[in-house]
Design a protein around this nucleic acid. Structure first.
Lengths: 345, 345
DNA sequence: CTGAAAGCGCTTACAG
DNA sequence: CTGAAAGCGCTTACAG
């Protein structure tokens, strides 16, 4: 049994009006209704008003699912980040979203939780739903982008990028920044400096480690790597183990803000003091960094500029513009606070 | 001109295979292909294998947009939160997402940024796309849920709830918690206690304020309200103004963690010390609370339990289960650290 | 168990 | 400017 719009027997909600209902009420064709609603072609003003009135009267809302099928796209931008609990990415999402909404795009946020499989499945989903574009900060730099490319869905990567080329990338200049920071610790007299690293299989992880290693090597010092996997708890465990191992590290370079939290906690629990016993420098500048005890010395990333640029590129691609893939690199800023030893750097 | 699957002239990507192509290759009907792919009815094993082989050979992926239209739903759970940069909601999102994925649901995250209009437009979008259910933490408690109800899309609210009844709600027991915390400050000798509040038009905002007011009134003390709008910067400005106004507040009750950051910063900038000059208690227990200077006394919410319960309810609703709307209330836990004065409470 | 056919609700060449 | 009609790619009663 097919229910008609008017047919609202008690209990069940009335079936929503379809375009055909509007057409009938306005005494025009469905094509005309469609045109009016999409402000498409020039339609006779009188018909336009009739259609609008009919639509209003029936409380008509176009069925998006039908439109999606017909157009083979869902008209939204997907934002895929590795860890929504990381304030760095949370801020990025907010900025991207703000710009997208401003430009009339809807946005869908997906959190891959530093998991390659989840990334794959979310990208698959966004491809299946035919989003118009994707801002991706990969959990897995080997991520498969082919399906997106086949479907002509533009992707711009941000913060971290993909192994395969061909997509626009907006990244931070990690290597020199971490190298310089490590170098300054060395100049301040530190000889035993450990690196609390994030997943080396990801660009930011490997680059930050590389920067640290370069500085250590230049100074002829032995590097000391602790694996924090970009996560707070893992970093806490790694640093606890480091300290328990009788290691004599007098300084720590930490690869992101979540791990800084874990590292600091581990140091405290071990009864050591910052910066007296152990100096700390971390990447990222979350709002609480300056309020910590002691205030945290950081390498701040220009998230707003990066996110803005990424959206600019994506929107141009969505608009069909064609240009060679760009890779843009933004410098980090060293903000010296107290956790690295006052004014020592 | 219609392009056929095989027809991949240079340059353009080959059109993706459709169900009909699979059917032809496997020499069965499209109905059979559909059945095999949906593991629907019992299909003859031989046909099944043929279909699977054909699908694999053509690298067939069902067109989700067509399926969505046919089924009138997109098979995903929408998660709508007021502020993705607030670690409280970020954690909630992660837990909800984890459970959803575990149960085979895809998830779409939407951030309404404490904005009623954005909430309306995201709910509209999720309705239009026919998600199977929504976890909503409202930015605007007057939010319109009717369209969701008309479409039979279940909604459960979490943390904050809606004015209109009829939806399941999982909330924290804000009033007694804030009242008790305020009361303890009073017992510790404080007479001038200010409240840094979040948007009173939202449930958590009004309830926390109510708890504070109740305690003050019971003690015959004059309340002092500062509006922080649940935002860090606004709270910093409000507290700065409070202190500049020559107010003699010796303690602050802050309604969420973001505002605590702002309040602490304002106190520092004003040259006052915590807890000596001003004691601070805040709602929320983000990971950095214990690492602040001084460690922050907080009212912690059982986010995991709340999010888990919310998902349980939602999944039952999605499964078609019918039961009266529930409202579940979870207690907060007072965690005493140093920011309220050592052991004074 | 299997297939032919209807239909989900739009959009968009095509003709007039 | 307007309408009749085809078609987007599936799913699912219905018959056999």
């Amino acid at each position: 049994m097919v229910r008609r719009p008017g047919d609202s027997s008690l209990g069940t909600a009335p079936r929503p009006a379809r375009i055909r209902d509007v057409a009938e009420l306005a005494a025009v064709s469905v094509a005309t209704v469609s045109r009016v609603l999409n402000e498409d072609a020039r339609v006779d003003p009188e018909l336009r008003d009739r259609v609008r009135a009919a639509a209003a009267q029936l409380d008509y809302r176009p069925n998006r699912l039908a439109r999606n099928l017909r157009r083979q796209q869902m008209d939204a931008i997907g934002v895929v980040v590795p860890d929504i609990e990381n304030p760095h990415f949370a801020e990025m999402v907010r900025i991207v979203e703000h710009i997208a909404l401003e430009r009339g795009h809807r946005v869908l946020v997906c959190n891959t939780d530093e998991d390659g499989e989840r990334q794959a499945s979310y990208l698959q989903m966004l491809a299946d739903e035919r989003v118009s574009g994707i801002v991706l900060s990969p959990s897995d730099s080997t991520g498969n982008i082919d399906l997106l490319r086949d479907l002509n869905i533009p992707v711009v990567t941000i913060d971290r990028t993909l192994k395969v080329g061909g997509t626009d990338a907006v990244v931070a200049d990690n290597i020199p920044a971490v190298r310089a920071a490590t170098h300054r610790l060395i100049q301040a007299g530190h000889r035993s400096i450990a690196f609390v690293g994030g997943r080396p299989e990801v660009e930011t992880g490997s680059e930050r480690q590389e920067g640290y290693l370069a500085a250590m090597e230049e100074a002829g010092l032995t590097p000391l790597l602790a694996d924090g996997g970009f996560r707070r708890d893992a970093a806490e465990a790694a640093v606890t183990q480091l300290l328990a191992g009788g290691c004599s590290a007098s300084a720590l370079v930490v690869a992101n803000n979540l791990m800084a939290l874990g590292a600091i906690r581990a140091i405290r629990l071990a009864g050591a003091r910052i910066p007296t016993d152990i100096a700390v420098i971390s990447v990222d500048n979350p709002p609480w960094a300056e309020l910590l005890d002691p205030p945290l010395t950081v390498l701040a990333q220009p998230i707003r500029a990066m996110a803005t640029r990424a959206m600019e590129l994506l929107i141009r691609r969505i608009g069909g513009e064609r240009f060679p893939a760009v890779r843009e690199i933004y410098p980090l800023e060293l903000i010296i606070r107290h956790s690295c030893g006052t004014n020592q750097l």
